[in-house]
Simulated scan of single mutants.
Amino acid sequence: MSKSVHENTGLGFILKETLQWSNETSINYPQVIAGFIGMASCISLGFYLNNLMFGLLSTFGVMITSDTSSDGTIKQHTIEQFRTMAIGTVAMIIGIIIAGHGWMTGGLIVTISTLAALLGGFSRTFAIASVQFVILSIIGSSMGDGGLHQDMFKISASFVTGSLLGIIVSVITGYLMQKLWDDKVSVQQTAKISYRQRFTTWRNKLTHFTGWKYTVRVALCMIAAQLIGFVFHLERSYWIGLTVAIVLKRDLAYSQRRIFQRGIGTAVGVLLGSCLLLWSLPQWDSVVIIGLLGALRPIFKNRSYAIYAMLMTPLMLMMFSTGSPVTAHLLEYRLLDTMIGCVLAYVLGFYIWKNASQGNFVGKT
């Protein structure tokens, strides 16, 4: 963390960091093209087969794999994408298995999130994989409220289909744009650290409370998220947990910035999404818009997370309401649950810790 957390709490800092724009990361065109072709194709196939569940799940597969880190060679990137697909598939199955059991489901989500936060401290790769696992587990647990147990393999197959499509398009585009990948290889030439060394470092950090701090922050936020959902009987309360999983980072200052970026971006995104109430889009117009939003996601994710969150809101609304109009209630749930998740992440995951010494495992993950 480059600046003290104590100095990064003013309104000026929040506005500056929320609206910041970064050109440090170049546009990854394979991700952009894979996002458009993959997501538009999956939704189109769902419409064609009259299987909207397939369209939704396969689109999630494209989204997850297209978000995979693109540094290194095409081979390295492809391996990372297949690893992401495997993690996502397992997480989705576990989420479906634990769904529909009331308080037990909530407790298992908290347990999964806490263990993932702990294991994510092993390395940056583990940290990224742990967040992906939590996100897909929550999504899986929200599907059908336990009524899709018998279809878990069909659901997994749909997710894998979308993932494979995204990987194939990304690899083909990467080969056609080989120079973009070659330019990145030299950046990644760093000394390798053995798993034994990583394990020793990770174990030593766990001998101090600093090494457990992120895990405790995640556990507090997830417990609160589940309690609020149950006590107030919120219809789509899983969005609260999803928001926490997305915005709560190991680095406190980075976590604070992400919380406000997500909150402001979602609020603006809901305003954009409200435009969908004005008219009912034909199916194939929805395909084009979802494809375009899928292409824009990787461009803005590393340049302006606030704009990324703004685009993700109408995208998710269109995906979850595929085949039916976007309603005012859906917009309200999205905004309310996201804001609750951001408040929980800020209070329990940042504010009460900002005066404590910062201890990071793997940086901004």
Rank of each mutant, 00 (worst) to 15 (best):
Q76Y: 06
Q76G: 12
H77Q: 10
H77W: 03
E80H: 15
E80Q: 13
Q81H: 01
R83M: 02
M85E: 05
A86W: 04
I87R: 01
I94D: 04
I94K: 06
G95V: 04
G100L: 04
G100N: 07
W103F: 13
T105L: 00
G107S: 06
L108D: 01
L108I: 13
I109F: 07
V110K: 03
S113G: 12
T114Q: 03
G121L: 05
R124M: 09
F126W: 03
A127R: 00
A127C: 12
I128V: 14
I128K: 01
A129W: 05
S130V: 06
S130D: 03
V131S: 02
V131I: 15
I138R: 04
M143V: 12
G144V: 08
G146S: 05
G147T: 10
G147R: 14
H149T: 13
H149E: 11
Q150K: 12
I155D: 10
A157C: 07
S158T: 06
V160K: 03
T161I: 09
G162Y: 07
G162N: 09
L164W: 08
L164Q: 06
L165N: 04
G166A: 12
G166L: 01
I167E: 06
I168Q: 00
T173N: 08
T173M: 12
Y175L: 10
L176F: 09
L176M: 12
M177H: 10
M177C: 11
Q178K: 15
Q178V: 14
Q178I: 13
W181A: 00
W181H: 13
D182M: 10
D183G: 11
D183H: 01
D183R: 05
K184R: 15
V187H: 13
Q188V: 12
T190E: 07
A191N: 15
K192S: 14
I193V: 15
S194C: 11
Y195Q: 15
R198I: 01
F199Y: 14
R203M: 08
K205L: 11
L206Q: 00
H208R: 14
F209C: 08
F209M: 11
T210W: 03
